[in-house]
Deep mutational scan, measured.
Amino acid sequence: KELVLALYDYQEKSPREVTMKKGDILTLLNSTNKDWWKVEVNGRQGFVPAAYVKKL
């Protein structure tokens, strides 16, 4: 599985998104969309802005 690092805090704005804190390590589930990547964090799956994370 591929991991990404949260570069910034992000507060979810819809049920399809997830909240993350700067420094969190997230599991990358899908990065086919250039703007929104699907990740898993704390057992929850959802989208975060691709610009807010970096592949490890």
Rank of each mutant, 00 (worst) to 15 (best):
S14Y: 07
M20D: 00
V4D: 00
A51W: 09
E12F: 07
E12H: 10
M20S: 01
L7E: 04
V53K: 00
V4C: 11
N42W: 09
L3H: 11
R16Q: 13
T19D: 04
N30E: 15
V53C: 13
V41I: 15
E2T: 13
K54E: 12
K22R: 12
G46R: 02
T27L: 14
A51K: 13
Y10V: 01
T27G: 07
Y10L: 02
V48W: 00
A51G: 10
K1F: 15
G46M: 05
K21G: 05
S31R: 08
Y8A: 12
N30M: 10
L5I: 15
K54Q: 14
L3W: 14
A51H: 11
E2R: 12
Y8N: 09
K22A: 14
V53L: 15
K54T: 13
K22C: 07
G43H: 07
K34A: 14
V53T: 05
S14K: 08
M20Q: 02
E17T: 09
T27H: 11
R44E: 06
D24C: 06
A50S: 14
R16C: 13
T19E: 04
S14E: 09
F47K: 03
E2L: 13
K1R: 14
P15S: 14
L29S: 03
V48G: 00
E17H: 07
A6F: 01
N33S: 11
E40K: 06
Y10A: 01
L5G: 03
A50K: 06
G43S: 07
T32C: 14
E12G: 15
L26N: 01
L28P: 01
A51P: 08
M20A: 02
L56C: 10
K55M: 15
Y10Q: 01
L7P: 00
V53H: 00
L26R: 01
S31K: 08
Y52D: 03
A6E: 00
A50D: 01
S14F: 07
N42R: 12
K13S: 12
Y10K: 01
N33R: 10
G23S: 03
L3D: 04
W36E: 04
K34M: 12
V4G: 13
V18H: 03
Y52M: 11
L7D: 02
T32G: 11
K38A: 09
D35N: 14
L56F: 11
K22H: 06
Q45F: 09
I25V: 12
E17P: 05
K38W: 14
V18L: 15
F47T: 03
M20T: 03
Y52R: 06
K13W: 05
L56Y: 10
Q45A: 12
K13I: 08
L3N: 06
